[in-house]
Design a protein around this nucleic acid. Sequence first.
DNA 1: TATTGTTATACTCTATAACTATA
DNA 2: TATAGTTATAGAGTATAACAATA
Lengths: 157, 157
Amino acid sequence: MGREAIDEQAVLQYLSMDFIIGYKLRRAQLAVFQDFIDTFAELKLRPAEFAVIANIAANPGQKQAAIAETLGIKPANLVALIDGLEGRGLAERRRGDADRRTHSLFLTETGERFVDEMYAVWRGHEQRLIERLGGEAERDRLIGLLDRLLEGAVVSG
Amino acid sequence: MGREAIDEQAVLQYLSMDFIIGYKLRRAQLAVFQDFIDTFAELKLRPAEFAVIANIAANPGQKQAAIAETLGIKPANLVALIDGLEGRGLAERRRGDADRRTHSLFLTETGERFVDEMYAVWRGHEQRLIERLGGEAERDRLIGLLDRLLEGAVVSG
DNA sequence: TATTGTTATACTCTATAACTATA
DNA sequence: TATAGTTATAGAGTATAACAATA
């Protein structure tokens, strides 16, 4: 009966959802993405597009498969994303010289200028989140905890 | 030029994606949900279904609108979810007595037994996450930080 | 008239299989 | 044969508008 009492308490605790890590994580992620989407509405940039542009800027010439791997998305789903960026004149595919099956990705000149603007907007968004968290030390602590969840995760594949 | 140098450094930092809160949050949430999905594959329970059942169990008789509000989903999208639970004999709708437009939700006896099993499975999942984080104190710290992100968020509507 | 739950529908994100062109 | 990128497609999740029953 002692055991039942403990279980009952635990059940009530989890049923409140307040201590469920995945639930809180999802709600927080949605709130942060909503802020991102609102913030970047003017630049018409979605989170995935931001991530792709940032990745090309950090490593110009990367192949599509490498970016998909880095961002954890399927190569097939990267195609429309890059089509969009290419259509807006921000990025371009260049056929591989050695291996003509591959596409290396680069920012255009327009894309380079866009990155500057994107960064300025992003800084406002990120600063707002840091303030909500209570400062950069808290931000670092959060990133550290999230990294632990990621490091411990079973890699699918 | 001093200013440019600073911006360039900041750009490189953010382009590495390592300090972007939303990005890390999304990756961690996906990793945690993947663990949840694998863990609950046997019970054939998705995160949203878990949340609905937990909510009914915590507050039997709640109306659909209230649950949708609590979980942050649209009433229209709750319909199929509850249809599924009702179809499996876990939950049931009861027409409101005072207001016959409303549906109050309850667990069936099967549902009550299912909750016990669900809790046992959930405890393994949550314990695994707590271990990844480094203990309950770290879990509490993470929840606290996520709450700050949620509290500071602009409520849509 | 307004509200609860429902239906229909569309849009995004994600996953898989089959295709092409190259290797 | 195998691989990089592509196409087509299907499944979740989520959003809105219109409807029926009821208030």
